[in-house]
């Protein structure tokens, strides 16, 4: 699968990238703000996006999730903002809280892959 990380902390972004690769998928890019990500998403054919809520351009992770939802791309919140994430649960396939549990990321990857192939 082709996966993207919307995360403004480069350490966490890289950690996620490695988890994605270890699970046998491809991380095709990352960005720290929704504005930047949106300009990159035009040309990418994505299967899943991991979305942090609090980004360099504000709490725009919610807008990002909505944007992806409208275009039929699966999103998953990866965030410390649990309340905000829960309030927008309908926009994503799953919510993973920080600090990240690698098993949770693996489960989401498997879930999205399954629903994509069925």
């Amino acid at each position: 699968m082709r996966v993207f990380c919307l995360e403004d902390n480069p350490l966490v972004a890289l950690d996620l990238e490695m988890m994605i690769e270890d699970a046998g998928h491809e991380c095709v890019g990352s960005a720290g703000s929704f504005a930047e990500a949106r300009s990159m998403w035009q040309d990418l054919d994505l299967d899943l996006v991991f979305i942090d809520i609090d980004l360099t351009d504000g709490k725009t992770g919610i807008d990002a999730a909505r944007w992806l939802r409208e275009r039929g791309t699966a999103g998953c919140f990866v965030t410390g903002q649990t309340e905000l994430a829960e309030a927008h649960r309908d926009l994503v396939v799953e919510i993973v809280t920080k600090p990240i549990d690698e098993k949770a990321i693996e489960r989401v990857l498997a879930l999205v892959q399954q629903s994509g192939s069925s």
Partner: peptide
Amino acid sequence: NILASVTA
């Protein structure tokens, strides 16, 4: 945020 960095 710091804990997330340290974990990563």
